[in-house]
Simulated scan of single mutants.
Amino acid sequence: MTHPQWHRAADDQVTLSGALDRLTVPALWSYIKQWTPESGGMELSLERVDRVDSAGMVLLIHLIEHAKKQNCHIMLSFVPEKLLMLVNLSNADAILADHIKTI
């Protein structure tokens, strides 16, 4: 099973691409719910995400929680500025603080 926005580079590396918004999140979440981590940690690159809204932010929060339940820690890399602003404005900093990789 594959999804056009979920690009697996290795067992512990995935890149998301395209828009993470209210139009794309439902199908992407349906795919992610079936995903099972293969390691205790994973890097999720957002380098190829070109648009994100609050639905995309919530998707990432749910993805992190889904992975935690399976003993996997997700680190987000190349987080877009707009997403960082949404996280800050939504007071979701505490939820995502340990999951954002800084350079």
Rank of each mutant, 00 (worst) to 15 (best):
M1E: 06
M1A: 13
M1I: 10
P4H: 09
Q5A: 05
W6A: 06
R8L: 07
A9K: 12
A10N: 13
A10E: 14
D12I: 02
D12V: 01
D12Y: 04
Q13D: 10
Q13I: 03
V14G: 04
V14Y: 05
L16P: 14
L16F: 12
A19R: 15
L20Y: 02
D21V: 03
R22C: 08
L23Y: 13
L23S: 07
V25C: 10
S30I: 04
K33V: 15
Q34F: 05
Q34W: 04
T36Y: 05
P37W: 04
P37E: 01
E38G: 15
E38Y: 07
E38K: 15
G40A: 13
G40M: 09
E43Y: 01
E43C: 02
E43H: 06
L44K: 00
S45D: 08
L46G: 12
V49H: 06
D50V: 09
V52L: 03
D53A: 03
S54L: 13
S54I: 12
A55G: 10
G56E: 11
M57S: 01
M57V: 05
M57F: 08
I61E: 02
H62M: 11
I64Y: 03
H66S: 03
H66I: 00
A67Q: 05
K69Y: 00
Q70M: 14
C72Y: 09
H73R: 05
I74H: 02
L76M: 08
F78M: 08
F78I: 01
E81P: 13
E81F: 11
L83H: 00
L83D: 02
L84K: 13
V87T: 09
V87S: 06
V87W: 01
N88W: 10
N88K: 15
N88P: 02
L89M: 12
S90F: 07
N91G: 07
N91Y: 05
N91S: 06
D93C: 03
D93T: 10
D93Q: 15
I95L: 14
L96V: 06
L96A: 04
L96K: 03
H99K: 00
H99V: 01
K101D: 12
K101A: 09
